[in-house]
Amino acid sequence: EFTQISGYVNAFGSQRGSVLTVKVENDEGWTLVEEDFDRADYGSDPEFVAEVSSYLKRNGGIKDLTKVL
């Protein structure tokens, strides 16, 4: 089950073990991109978060400006 990723309007994530599946949706709710990120592939949590965040930004993730990150 996908849940909204904090700080984004149209990005959602689903966690299974160490694998986080993220997706970005358009205004109609269609999935634009979907990608798996395995936490085990990264040396640290900040590196993992930075990679996921960068992916979302590159692929149309819209920041939720009503929330302070």
Rank of each mutant, 00 (worst) to 15 (best):
V52A: 00
E47G: 02
G13A: 13
R58L: 13
P46R: 14
V68G: 12
T21F: 05
Q15P: 05
S18E: 03
D38Q: 02
W30V: 14
T21I: 07
F37Q: 01
S54G: 09
E35S: 10
I62V: 08
Y8K: 06
E28L: 10
D64P: 04
F12I: 04
T21W: 05
D45E: 10
E28C: 14
S54R: 12
V68W: 12
S54I: 08
E35H: 14
S44D: 06
D41Q: 09
S53M: 14
Y55G: 02
V24F: 05
R58C: 14
E51N: 08
G60K: 03
D45R: 04
S14M: 12
E1A: 12
T66M: 09
K23D: 01
S18K: 04
G7F: 05
L69Q: 14
N26R: 06
S44E: 03
V19K: 05
L69A: 13
K57S: 12
D41L: 11
K57A: 11
D45Y: 14
D41F: 08
R58T: 10
E35I: 13
S6V: 10
K23G: 01
E34I: 14
D45T: 10
N10S: 05
D38L: 01
T21K: 09
R39N: 02
G7K: 04
V19G: 00
Q15F: 14
V33D: 05
S53F: 11
I62C: 08
G43K: 13
T3C: 15
R16E: 03
V22L: 05
Q4A: 10
L65E: 15
N10Q: 04
K57N: 14
Y55A: 02
R58M: 11
S14E: 05
N59S: 06
G13W: 15
D41R: 08
S18G: 07
E51K: 10
F12M: 05
V52L: 10
Y42T: 01
E28N: 09
V9H: 08
D38S: 02
G29F: 04
W30I: 14
A11S: 03
L20Q: 00
L65R: 07
D36C: 13
V33Q: 06
L65V: 13
I5G: 04
E1R: 10
F12G: 01
T31E: 05
N26C: 10
V68Y: 12
V19L: 05
F2E: 03
D64H: 06
R39T: 03
Q4R: 11
E35M: 14
G17L: 04
I62P: 01
V33H: 11
G43F: 07
F2K: 06
D41P: 02
K63I: 14
Q4T: 08
E1H: 13
T3D: 05
F48C: 05
P46F: 13
S18N: 09
R39S: 03
G43H: 11
T31F: 06
N10V: 05
K67P: 15
G13I: 12
D45F: 13
F37M: 00
G61V: 13
K57R: 09
L65P: 14
T66D: 15
N10D: 01
K63T: 10
V68E: 15
V19C: 08
G17R: 01
K67R: 06
A50N: 09
Q4I: 14
D36P: 04
R39L: 04
I5M: 08
A40T: 08
E25S: 14
V33F: 12
F12S: 05
S14A: 09
V19D: 00
G17Q: 02
D36I: 10
Y55H: 02
T66I: 10
D41T: 07
Y8Q: 05
F12E: 02
A40P: 00
G61Q: 03
E28W: 12
S44M: 02
T3G: 06
D38C: 08
P46W: 14
F2T: 05
G13V: 11
V19M: 04
G13C: 14
D27F: 10
L65D: 14
S6K: 12
K57P: 02
E25W: 10
I5C: 12
E1P: 11
P46N: 15
N59L: 07
S53V: 13
E51T: 10
L20D: 00
W30P: 03
Y8T: 06
G60P: 01
F2A: 05
V49P: 01
E47A: 07
Q4G: 07
D41N: 12
A50G: 07
D36W: 09
K23L: 06
G43S: 12
K63E: 14
K67V: 14
L69D: 15
S54L: 11
L65N: 13
S53E: 14
F48E: 01
W30H: 12
Q4H: 08
P46E: 14
K57M: 13
L65Q: 09
S18W: 07
V19R: 04
L56R: 00
E25V: 15
Q15V: 13
V52S: 02
S14W: 12
L32F: 08
F2Y: 09
I62S: 04
N26M: 06
N26K: 05
R39H: 04
E35G: 08
Y55K: 02
G17C: 07
V19T: 04
S18V: 04
D36E: 12
G60R: 01
D64Y: 09
D38V: 02
L20H: 01
T3W: 12
E1D: 12
R39M: 06
L69T: 14
E34S: 15
V52G: 00
V22C: 02
R16L: 07
Y8S: 06
F48P: 00
E51Q: 10
G29I: 02
T66V: 09
E25Y: 15
K63Y: 13
T31A: 09
D27R: 09
F37V: 00
N26D: 11
N59W: 14
D27E: 11
G61M: 05
F2G: 05
L20C: 15
T21P: 00
V49R: 11
D64R: 04
D45H: 09
A11N: 01
A50C: 13
T3L: 12
A40R: 11
G60I: 02
Q15E: 06
R58Y: 09
Y55M: 04
R58E: 09
T31P: 07
L32I: 12
D38G: 02
D64T: 08
G29Y: 02
G7Q: 05
D45S: 06
E47L: 07
T21N: 03
D41H: 11
K23Y: 07
G29A: 06
I5K: 05
E51W: 07
E25N: 11
S44V: 02
D27C: 15
N26A: 07
D36S: 15
S14I: 13
E34T: 13
V33R: 06
D45M: 09
V24L: 08
G61R: 02
G43W: 06
V68H: 11
Q15N: 08
T3H: 11
E1K: 12
D45A: 06
F48W: 07
Y8C: 09
V22F: 02
F48G: 00
S53D: 13
S53N: 13
V9D: 04
N59R: 05
S14Y: 10
G29C: 07
F2N: 04
A11P: 01
D41I: 06
T31L: 10
G7A: 04
G13Y: 13
Y42R: 01
K63V: 13
V49G: 05
P46K: 13
K57G: 09
T21E: 01
K67G: 15
L20I: 07
T31R: 04
E47Q: 07
P46Q: 14
L65G: 11
E47C: 10
R58D: 10
